[in-house]
Design a protein around this nucleic acid. Sequence first.
DNA 1: ATGCCGGGCGAAGCCCGA
Length: 262
Amino acid sequence: MKIATWNVNSVRKRAGNLTSFLKRVKPDVIVLQELKAQDEHFPHEAAHEAGYKCEVFGQKGFNGVAMISTHAVDNIQRGLPGDEADTQSRYIEGRIKTPMGPLTVGGLYLPNGNPIGTEKFTYKLGWMKRLEARARELLSRGEMFALAGDYNVCPTDMDVYDPRLFAKDALCQPESRAAYRRLLNLGLTDAVRAMHPDDTRWTYWDYTAGAWQKDNGLRIDHILLSPQAADRLRAVDIEKEERGKPEPSDHVPVWCELDVGD
DNA sequence: ATGCCGGGCGAAGCCCGA
């Protein structure tokens, strides 16, 4: 079972990149972030062409997330519980049956939170608190799950090309990192870090200032696994080559493979 | 370099991203 995540930075602009990625890497399920599109503008054909069905939680102009799968998905939830006033489309969740029991996948686009000291940073920390509550709820079931997406958190200085430049950035604040660490402390496993404990591997390169050419990147897209899912973790990868293609997203896909006996 | 690119919206210039 291959689970992927990708912040596509406009799903309409990236429809071609998405189709070729699905055909090349063949994830069973992929969660997408930053659709920047309403539900009715989602390029269903791009996914159908590669054999995928789509669950979309779009929003006009900004945000927007989706879950695309070759398997049947049920128990679909749109939106992160815990704040009825939150109108931003940043979370989608669904469940897939496997020979080893149900696998729940949550796709998330965690708020960026910049600049610090504003309501944007407060919103980020509040959102992370709600995500922790969701993780606790899922953990109580004792089943496999993956929370995958653009976390907008560099977990440690190892995940930033130049930590000094990001000392005041919301992605690297002690509060952001502590909230991320609370997820790990619940018993979740950072799939990429578990398989590559000592590597510097980026998932994002800014469009500006030649960041890609200089390999000035960040690791902010993550897949966190429940204990039952982490038991079955077999492989991970970061699809760096997508950043070098024409008209790329500034993020690249991340995936992990779980051995669920299929 | 708290936006150098890139995208959305909507029809010019502003908002947003990390």
